[in-house]
Design a protein around this nucleic acid. Structure first.
Lengths: 188, 188
DNA sequence: CGCCGTGATGGCAGTGACTGACATCAGTCT
DNA sequence: AGACTGATGTCAGTCACTGCCATCACGGCG
């Protein structure tokens, strides 16, 4: 028999999400999260750098997916097209877990500290995307501007998709937000 | 005679910037900042909500300036034009203090916590700009997308201006970044 | 003239996030 | 069997941040 229950990291993630949702991020202590997971505070900090990070374990995989999608986009695709199609490729990753994504988003928007953390994750994503564009031969500042525009598109599309304002799927929202951005950028 | 030296808030800002620059944000305690300003830790927290906020006292004025510039832009101006011209209007505000803006930016970039705080300030700016656009009759999601695009333009332009890569002034960099964004958005 | 309210500050105890050092011990390797 | 490893626990310590109460120059007011 194993010495400890398995998947302590997953139990910590689960416990943290539950508690943040129940009583809010600010009103939850790390000791409480650890207790619910049957562990101690010290162990929490061995798995996560801080109290916020426990909600963002998916970021590295998302970044990897996006970057490789940009890198494998057809040579002929324009920068904004490469970024947009990469964003669309994240559809399956989110569509399955719409409910949990929604709950997580509710928790994040309810806390300033968590919003800050989300923003820096998105900024890191933008920076990685800009790097991938540069590897495709896109010069600065076009690479950075395109990546930032892509993140803006994603933010708007993701929010609309989560709000369930209509029944379109995430890639459709992304495509539509791209169109909107192109319209406003053109000065219409 | 005054009971205390005047401008304790300003002294705290000054001391904090100096110490963050000298030994880094992480290696500076609030007690040290307060001591250099001839005050106590408790007083620091009466003036600033936390250790990061001391670097961002200019944000409300910037937001006010940008919002009123958007609101007073000519009726005929397109949304992106209204935002861009508002951003250009911040030129004088920064041009005078280029050196201190540069030092401040060095401090911010060196610390993850400070970068997070900067990002949420910019996001709050974007949200305020989107609100101003809506008051001009711009619908969602165009308002949000235009505001976010404007912030991206500003970030790129500001960084290039600070880097001193050439001798153009901030409004010129903003105008140029707008052009770049329009080019990449169009799919070129 | 003397009393009183006000506002900025200091002092102090307490909570909670996070860290470093060391101990424990089931399972594994040799 | 004995050494080794890796995940966990224990504990003390630092520091950000908060609540509460004390202090006291200043300005007004009777």
């Amino acid at each position: 028999m194993a010495r400890w229950e398995p998947d302590s990291r997953g139990r910590l993630e689960q416990a943290a999400l539950e508690l943040y949702a129940e009583r809010g991020f600010e009103n939850t202590t790390v000791a409480e999260i650890a207790a619910r997971a049957g562990l101690t505070e010290r162990t929490f900090f061995r798995h996560f750098a801080d109290k916020r990070e426990v909600l963002f374990w998916g970021a590295p995989a998302l970044e990897e997916l996006l970057v490789s999608a940009v890198e494998t986009a057809p040579e002929s695709a324009s920068p904004i097209e490469a970024i947009t199609s990469a964003l669309e490729a994240t559809g399956p990753l989110f569509e399955q877990r719409r409910d949990s994504a929604q709950q997580r988003q509710l928790v994040i928007v309810a806390s300033r500290e968590l919003r800050e953390r989300e923003l820096i994750k998105l900024a890191s994503l933008a920076s990685a995307l800009a790097g991938a564009l540069r590897r495709r031969g896109v010069a600065e500042p076009a690479a950075t501007l395109t990546a930032e525009a892509g993140i803006a598109i994603f933010r708007v599309a993701f929010a609309r998709w989560l709000s369930g304002i209509d029944s379109r799927d995430l890639p459709q929202h992304i495509r539509e937000s791209l169109g909107e951005l192109q319209t406003v950028a053109a000065g219409r």
